[in-house]
């Protein structure tokens, strides 16, 4: 299969998975707002279908490009959304609350929408990206950011919980505050471990590619800020017993930092990580 055909196939799979994510998001909304139990079950099936197509899209691009598709804005955005959906499915299976989909899937869908607006061209890797560290560094970012996305969705759920009417349906499907807090904590603990890996592997790679393992590049600095925010969250939780609303707010702020580190830094701050730009030798 030629590269043009592969790209067409990938685009088709991507668009179809985007559509399924939209349908799933709608079903989860109907489930939660319309109190239709069956819609939640279908939403769960549809998101899994979308995830399979999304995975196929990534694999087709991987084969067509001859490298792992994690090297530009489009590729990372679509992988980021994939990471959120993967983490969501794991947490949905583990904790069994479909209502999480109402809050988490819209985040994944928005990031897929952002990916859809980026150029899908497959470009060969610039020399600095030709490293085995790319897979490990960016792959861990996909999982870590995905887990933070789930944590943010669940924390939003926590913050909105008091504004939802306490009818039997909501009582049955909306986890209690402690459980929501626990799910968010678990997701942040997962994300924090992977973010640590992102920073450590990035530093090792940077030493090989740029001659410095830490250069206070905007991306590095904002990753560190994000890491510190989540570290403060985890410390405050253990030492000060922060739970509930404060913890949920911190989780949402942390995810805003994640989004800024990914989108804001690449868009607004000149950085050696801005691979959308053409740099002299990187």
């Amino acid at each position: 299969m030629g590269i043009e055909q592969s790209l067409r196939l990938e685009t088709g799979l991507f668009n179809f998975s985007l559509l399924l994510y939209l349908v799933s998001m709608g079903l989860y909304l109907v489930f939660f707002i319309g109190k239709k139990e069956v819609a939640g079950t279908y939403g769960s099936y549809v998101i899994k279908g979308g995830f399979i197509l999304h995975t196929l899209a990534l694999l087709v691009r991987w084969i067509a490009a001859g490298r792992i598709p994690l090297s530009n804005q489009y590729e990372f955005a679509t992988a980021f959304a994939w990471g959120i959906v993967l983490c969501f499915m794991i947490f949905e299976i583990k904790f069994g609350y479909k209502a999480m989909g109402t809050f988490v899937i819209p985040i994944a869908f928005l990031i897929m929408g952002y990916a859809a607006m980026q150029s899908k061209d497959i470009r060969p890797l610039m020399p600095a990206l030709q490293s085995n560290w790319l897979s490990l560094h960016v792959g861990t970012a996909v999982i870590g950011y995905g887990a933070f996305g789930v944590a943010a969705g669940v924390s939003l759920m926590f913050l909105l919980r008091n504004h939802l009417s306490a009818n039997p349906f909501v009582k049955k499907h909306l986890p209690d505050g402690d459980t929501l807090d626990l799910i968010s904590y678990r997701a942040i603990a997962l994300g924090f471990f992977f973010l640590t890996l992102v920073i450590v592997t990035g530093a090792i790679w940077a030493e090989q590619a740029w001659g410095r393992y830490w250069a206070w590049d905007p991306k590095e600095t904002w990753s560190l800020i994000t890491w510190i925010i989540y570290a403060v969250y985890l410390h405050a939780r253990i030492i000060r017993g922060w739970q509930g609303k404060k913890a949920a707010l911190f989780s949402v702020i942390g995810f805003v930092c994640v989004l800024f580190t990914y989108i804001g830094v690449n868009t607004w701050l000149p950085s050696i990580h801005s691979y959308a730009l053409v740099l002299p030798l990187q």
Binding site: P127, Q130, Q208, L281
Partner: peptide
């Protein structure tokens, strides 16, 4: 790029052209 020459505790990086 990504493969510096290491010698006597020094690393020599291909940085630009």
């Amino acid at each position: 790029v990504n493969d510096p020459l290491r010698v006597e505790g020094l690393s020599i990086y291909q940085n630009g052209t």
